[in-house]
């Protein structure tokens, strides 16, 4: 999907790129009329090299050494004239194409975002499973500890109670004789003491709310 971004940049750009890379050696070709670009001979074989042969395929040319085109020189040379030539010949890009291009660009961005999201979601599902598995183990451990603590606590209670019943411990059963009953307070219920609170109230009224 991401590759598609580069695949359809524009008709013009793609042409320039093809000119720059696939048929890099035919330096003079760029100066020719655009019609010659599409001639069947040019794309006959990628192995075909030699500027003279391409420029005038039907005229014999002396076998001379042509300096190989370097990547730095190749695109630079044809860039400007190529564009100018194209602009003069190709008609203005129609609206429908522009719309399609905009849609294409928009959908590319969308696709990229979605792909990222998909990766994230996929990653999280894997991670969540792992995390769940880990937490499940933790839960089991906690359940086990709870179980053990509960059991130990209750068994201890029972043991203490049994020890308590042994006569040599001198422990007695609960009875009213060893229970203290406090009589209910008789008389008036406790009155809120007014004298000491009066200054306090006035003091707290001035105090900030935080206190």
């Amino acid at each position: 999907m991401i590759a598609s971004v580069q695949r359809y940049p524009s008709h013009r750009a793609s042409h320039r790129r093809r000119a720059a890379t696939a048929q890099r050696p035919d330096v003079p070709r760029a100066f020719r009329e655009p019609a010659a670009v599409d001639s069947g001979k040019v794309i006959r074989h990628p192995a075909m090299q030699g500027a003279a042969a391409i420029a005038q395929p039907n005229t014999p040319a002396p076998l001379t050494l042509v300096p190989p085109a370097t990547p730095s020189t190749a695109p630079q040379a044809p860039a400007k004239p190529s564009r100018r030539a194209r602009q003069t010949t190709t008609p203005k890009v129609p609206l429908w194409l522009r719309t399609l291009l905009i849609i294409q660009q928009g959908s590319s961005i969308l696709t990229f975002c979605l792909a990222t999201a998909v990766l994230m979601v996929y990653g999280s599902t894997v991670y969540i499973q792992q995390a769940w598995s880990e937490d499940f183990r933790h839960l089991e451990q906690l359940q086990r500890e709870k179980r053990e603590l509960t059991t130990a606590n209750e068994l201890m209670k029972n043991q203490l109670a049994q020890q308590a019943t042994a006569p040599e411990n001198n422990l007695v059963a609960p009875s009213p004789a060893n229970t203290i009953f406090l009589p209910k307070a008789t008389g008036q219920p406790v009155q809120p003491v007014s004298t000491p609170t009066a200054p306090l109230v006035s003091f707290t009224a001035d105090a900030p709310l935080g206190y």
Binding site: Q49, A53, L63
Partner: peptide, 25 residues
């Protein structure tokens, strides 16, 4: 660089014969 493998390109009559037959095509 010359291209000796290019079969469609007729050799000039006075040119020496290619050193080997065009094989890969």
């Amino acid at each position: 660089m010359s291209n000796p493998d290019f079969p469609a390109t007729p050799s000039p009559p006075d040119a020496p014969a290619p050193p080997f037959t065009p094989r890969p095509y």
